[in-house]
Every structure is written in structure tokens, then in C-alpha cells.
Design a protein around this nucleic acid. Structure first.
Lengths: 163, 163
DNA sequence: CCAAAGATGTTACACTATAACCCTTTCTGT
DNA sequence: ACAGAAAGGGTTATAGTGTAACATCTTTGG
């Protein structure tokens, strides 16, 4: 049985953005973390699509979107905050950042990355987590965090390349 | 049952290096790939320990080891060759490179990374591979490569931090 | 031996990220 | 409300990682 994830399909993306921003506001409120206008704006830009964005791309878009020219440290500090709050993930293989669809609980960073269209989809699998933990335990390793990045073709790009 | 991997224990590291270089020479021969003196020297430097090394660290060590001052492209080209031949892996989370203990067959890059001592140990688990493939398949994704990086404490550093 | 391909050298530069310092805003305890 | 502390953000400069483009040298194969 296959179930194509939302981000790989056409969908009403406004709902993704709205949901992400609502969750972020709620969570930060609960946690006493300050989701400032700048941080919220960066989060919204990250969520403009399901494609991971680089820090310098975000800088450019900030400049475009709000005639606000910011230097790298400003963006990186906002990104650090969002990472700490689990509102975004960093994709190491791309030096890029993408919104987290389930920021309410901490979880490892597991992604499917389409090399053709650039879309990133987060995987949540208890079985996968357990397999990884088993492998760590077997080596006597105390696991603290893990990240998985799977590269390939999403269903859409796959059918196009088959044609 | 736990079995502490070799790289996490004291061991005769000369054997690791010798084995790696022997395998590399054999494989490149079989494949008609040219393991030039420079490439071999870079491979040997990568293998000086089980800790991933950055490209610029390698440059420095090349200069020290052989009074041979090389520019970045030289090191990166050697690294690219070694990556293509599967003789080393890149650890994305560290921007660093580490020797592959089983270069004779292509395989994904799965590592346990000790944040205290820096040692990287490669995992090979059919179960892990299958779980990842299952998750990709379920999403209708055509998997082409994957990399897993697990961060934590190795058995040694773990017992020291418990004390 | 010559031509082509492959490997390395060299210069310059692009991209990613952080250090250090300063000023402003917000929070905290009284 | 106020003073002091803490956090956020602006600014400049620089560190760290990686590549483009072109020149030179070496190996290979006809």
C-alpha cells in the first residue's frame, strides 16, 4: 500500500502555511518563547514551499518581501531560534532549511528529498526509529539524535522521467 | 547482545590503514581507476584515525607530512575521486570525510558519531536498509541513495561521562 | 611519436556561517 | 514605577567550505 504524502501532491498550500504559523504561535506561547515579528517572517518564508531554502536565499527574500535588508547574522539567529523550537529542520546535505509539520513533539529529522523538484517530505516511522535505536544499542552507543536523508525521485518526477 | 565496534575500542590501527590501502589498490586496479600517489596519500591521511577529517585539515596535513603545499581544488579533486570509488564517505553533519571499511561493494552511508571523541563508526544493517526502503516505497518515492548520521556517545566516552 | 584524455597546479571567487561589539527592547524583582 | 538583567537585533568584519576556469604536465593508445 502506498500513500503519496501531501507535499508531493497538489494541495492547498495556504492551509499548510496557516497551520504552521498557528502551531508556532501556540507552541511559543505555551513555552514562553518569543516568536518575534522577524522570526515569524522567516518561518513564513521557509514555509512558502516544501522545498528547503538556504539562509542566503531567505535573506534575499526578506529583502524582496519587506524592503528590509538584513545581514547574515540576523537570519542565522532567527533560524537558530526556529531550530531550537523544533519549528524547522536543517537538511545537512543541502545546507538548507525546511518547515516542520509536527513541531509539537521533538523528533529526529528524517526526510525524503526529490532531486528533481526539490521537495522535502518528512517521514515519521516508529519502526524506523526503533531500528536505528537497536543498531545503536547493539554497538553500545548512547544515541542522542539522528538524521536520515533519502535522495531520489518523488512520485511526480518519477512518472515524468519514466515517460 | 552488544558488540562494541573495532573503531570504538583500542586496536592495532596500523592494520586498519594497511588493509584500507591494500583494498584501495586492488579495487582501483580491477576497475581501471588510477590511484595516483596524491590520491593514495590523501586516502592514507583520511585513514590516520577513525575521526572524520575536514578538507582543509587534510590540506594542512599534506603540507606538514610532505612539505607539499596544495590548493583546495587539489584536495577536493582527490576527495571526489575517493568518494566516487567508494573508498571514503562524506559526513554531511561535520563537513568531513572518513575512510570506508568495506569499499568493495556500494552501500549507503550510515554512521554512529561520537560527539565526545569524534570517532565515526559505519553501520551495515540489512534490516535498517529494508526499513528505509519500505518507508520510501510507501510514499511512492524512488530511492536512489540515503545517509544516516546518528550522534551520541560511544561506549568509552559514555562510561567516562557516567563516572 | 603524436594526439587525446586524464591528472594536477594556480588564481580567483562563491557560498555558508560565526565572532565581536553595540544599541534597543523586554522581562524581573522590588 | 524603576533599576538592573536578559534577550533580541543591527553592523562590520572575517572564518570555513567548496568550485569555476584556465594552464601545465603526464599517461595512454593508436
Amino acid at each position: 500500500m502506498t500513500h503519496t504524502p501531501l507535499a508531493f501532491r497538489h494541495h492547498n498550500h495556504r492551509l499548510c502555511v496557516r497551520g504552521a504559523l498557528d502551531s508556532a504561535r501556540t507552541l511559543c506561547n505555551e513555552r514562553g518563547a518569543r516568536l518575534t515579528p522577524l522570526r515569524e517572517q522567516v518561518l513564513e518564508l521557509v514555509w512558502q514551499s516544501h522545498k528547503p531554502l538556504g539562509a542566503y536565499q531567505l535573506m534575499d527574500q526578506l529583502a524582496t518581501a519587506s524592503t528590509r535588508r538584513v545581514a547574515p547574522p540576523t537570519v542565522y539567529r532567527a533560524l537558530d531560534f526556529l531550530l531550537e523550537q523544533g519549528l524547522i529542520h536543517r537538511i545537512n546535505g543541502l545546507n538548507a532549511y525546511v518547515g516542520c509539520p509536527s513541531p509539537e513533539h521533538r523528533h529526529p529529522s528524517h526526510f525524503l528529498l526529490c532531486r528533481a523538484c526539490g521537495v522535502a517530505v518528512e517521514i515519521e516511522s516508529a519502526q524506523l526509529n526503533e531500528t536505528i535505536m537497536d543498531n545503536a544499542r547493539e554497538a553500545g552507543f548512547r544515541l542522542e539524535s539522528h538524521s536520515l536523508e533519502v535522495t531520489g525521485l518523488c512520485p511526480d518526477c518519477r512518472s515524468q522521467s519514466d515517460a
